[in-house]
């Protein structure tokens, strides 16, 4: 049984995956051997119509999206789904001639599995595009964090804090929504932990910059230590955001492969 890494994908694919598994088991155990398969022309026609709509909508998306990876990854999934749909049509034609046909049964299993696989590919492609949107926001924050090094006055610090705040809020909201969407408990926890650390470190960083600015303007020494302190907090925050980016790209399969 495949394991789906988001709740949306799971809710869409789990019912069909379960039914395919049951039918495959029934066939493997010979439970349906020697039994006629009824005329499937009507339900197969419904699948064919749904596939043709899906591919039409999908192709329009490929044409309009600016996401180059989505442009690349979607067409093979359309082909997979279309070929599988053709197999189901062939199977229903074979069954009309012979309701006991063994090759037709194999075509039904292959076609159903192919559609599950193709639709799974499509949903994953979309999910990866969503993840890339979150990663772009995280990278924006990573980039802006480096500006901390050039903050030398209190005025700069106010601007810096003002600019960093909305991005942080956006990132935090996106990570919160994403962790709720994940089915893998460990990945959810890793995102929550890293995001909490980043949020806790934000006032620490601002305070470290403030101490650096004050120390530098007072010319009383201690600038190097203040700088080291600021760098330490900045590096810790960057490491946590990089960890968030890494975890966002994990799927359950990665974890299984790793295990």
């Amino acid at each position: 049984m495949p394991v789906f890494h988001t709740k949306t994908i799971e809710s869409i694919l789990e019912p069909v995956a379960q039914q395919i598994s049951h039918l495959v088991i029934m066939h493997e155990e010979g439970e349906v051997d020697g039994k006629a398969i009824p005329d499937l022309t009507v339900p197969v026609a419904a699948v064919q119509a749904a596939v043709s709509n899906l591919v039409r909508v999908g192709k329009e998306t490929v044409q309009t999206t600016e996401d180059q990876l989505m442009k690349r990854d979607m067409p093979p999934a359309f082909i997979k789904v279309e070929n599988s749909s053709s197999k189901l049509v062939q199977a229903s034609q074979m069954l009309k001639a012979d309701p006991y046909s063994v090759p037709a049964r194999d075509y039904l299993i292959d076609g159903s599995r192919g559609i599950l696989s193709g639709t799974s590919d499509l949903l994953l492609t979309f999910d990866e595009a969503e993840v890339r949107k979150i990663i772009r926001v995280c990278k924006g924050i990573l980039e802006y964090l480096t500006v901390a090094e050039v903050v030398e006055t209190m005025e700069d610090l106010i601007t810096y804090t003002k600019n960093l705040g909305p991005g942080m809020t956006k990132m935090s909201k996106m990570i919160e929504e994403r962790q709720q969407e994940l089915t893998h408990q460990e990945h959810r926890q890793m995102l929550v932990n890293s995001m909490n650390t980043v949020k806790e470190l934000l006032p620490v960083l601002i305070s470290a910059i403030k101490i650096f600015v004050t120390t530098k303007s007072s010319r009383g020494g201690g600038t190097e230590e203040a700088e080291r302190n600021r760098r330490f907090t900045f590096e810790k925050m960057s490491a946590e955001i990089n960890e968030i980016i890494r975890v966002l790209q994990l799927t359950t399969w990665d974890e299984d492969a790793w295990a």
Binding site: I12, Q19, V57, S112, I115, T119, L123, F126
Partner: peptide, 28 residues
């Protein structure tokens, strides 16, 4: 649990429609 081919094909058609809805929603 007994599953028939008709049931599976109906589920497949519904699944494909749901995937299409996902594409339409996320695209918008």
């Amino acid at each position: 649990l007994r599953v028939s081919w008709e049931q599976l094909l109906t589920t497949i058609a519904r699944t494909i429609n749901e995937v299409e809805n996902q594409i339409l929603t996320r695209d918008a």
